[in-house]
Amino acid sequence: MHSAAPAKTTLFATYFALIALLALSAAAAKWQIGPLWNLFIALGIAAVKTALVFLVFMQLRYQRGLVRVFALAGFLWLAISGVLTFSDYLTRGWTP
């Protein structure tokens, strides 16, 4: 299980990538191209950052399939809650 672990250089490279992404998202917020676009860019960058933390810092890259499934299950179930909740909110205005 702990045979493969990220090397020090990988950890630092990931860290600098995370800081660069933070700078990017802070800068993108100042560059206004419409609230929805800004939101999507900010959330997209957050997703990439989370993926980096999960894969390298939390060593998901080096884990067996089972742990990956469990890591993904939480997000999948969150997506279920979001999608089905919005199947209500987004269609409330529709007139039959």
Binding site: L84, S87, D88, L90, R92
Partner: peptide
């Protein structure tokens, strides 16, 4: 079982389209 919860809300003000899906 995680995909059906809206059937408790058919007569609330939930959207009828969501009701059909649920």
């Amino acid at each position: 079982g995680f995909l059906v919860w809206g059937h408790h809300m058919f007569v609330s003000s939930q959207s009828v389209y969501a009701g059909v899906v649920f």
